[in-house]
Design a protein around this nucleic acid. Structure first.
Lengths: 142, 142
DNA sequence: GCTAATGCCTATCAAAATACTTAGAAATGC
DNA sequence: GCATTTCTAAGTATTTTGATAGGCATTAGC
């Protein structure tokens, strides 16, 4: 159970756009360079975001992408859902035994709550200091 | 972001054992038949559960598997972690920008809370009626 | 108008993970 | 001894992931 690079890099793009909101377009090239990612790959990820109406593109030299809405109005869920597809925790869950269904539903609700209550404004404003003490890789195991 | 059949069928096995706790071993054959699954595939899934000490096997005719502990002492997390591996939501998270890290941490904590507070006794006792109204497939999208 | 910068589109591909299947050996109750 | 069951290992088809490649379309600045 993992979030793929689609979701991750997509969040990277959107948070970068949120940080530059109201200051003109941001090019994928600059994001790719800052985060050391493949520009071509980011192009593929931004396409669904554009189709979903979350970003608007400005073509040509000095072009790039801008958010179509305020960062406070865009949630992590909006982004993750577009990029990871409509998230089905378990395929064919409706056929599953009620006992197990109960577990998937609890997990689904927990994730849903986080995704829908976390905006990219929240995240863009998040500073290093608030992370107090989380540093070792193993701390990120569930 | 999906839970694979490993985690799903593993939960199926463990809930079935929980329901029969104290009444002798349960064979994989019976579980496979009840849930219309491949017995051979279940064999592969139960091996890690045995290695992790969650179940004990009884070989030979009329053999099967039993829980090594009370159903109230075994959590969904114990099972999912064994079968899906130590769950890393995001690979190399410690290198990720603090803004994004914050999101993965919130999701991680939410999932963790559910997994560690849901026991297979909870689930085994869960009855159909409590599901009130959840029926359509789309309701399981996150 | 030319050029550089940028977005847009389609195709291809290698590696890994997933979800099994196949084949058979070893142990045990009756 | 035979049916039943666990145990072990290997093989395989499909899907997903994470890109890479090549080229066209649009625009700002000179």
């Amino acid at each position: 159970m993992k979030i793929s690079t689609k979701g991750r890099y997509g969040m990277t793009i959107m948070i970068e756009l949120a940080k530059n909101h109201g200051e003109g377009p941001v090019s994928l090239k600059s994001i790719a360079q800052t985060h050391d990612l493949s520009e071509h790959y980011l192009e593929q990820l931004v396409a669904p975001l554009r189709n979903a109406g979350l970003v608007r593109s400005i073509r040509g030299a000095y072009g790039g992408y801008v958010l179509t809405d305020e960062p406070s109005k865009i949630t992590a869920g909006d982004i993750i859902r577009v990029l990871e597809g409509p998230i089905v925790l378990v395929e064919g869950i409706e056929n599953e035994a009620p006992a197990q269904r109960e577990l998937w539903i609890r997990i689904r609700d927990a994730i849903k709550r986080v995704l829908d209550h976390t905006t990219i404004e929240d995240l863009a404003n998040h500073t290093e200091e608030e992370d107090n003490g989380i540093s070792d890789a193993y701390m990120f195991y569930i």
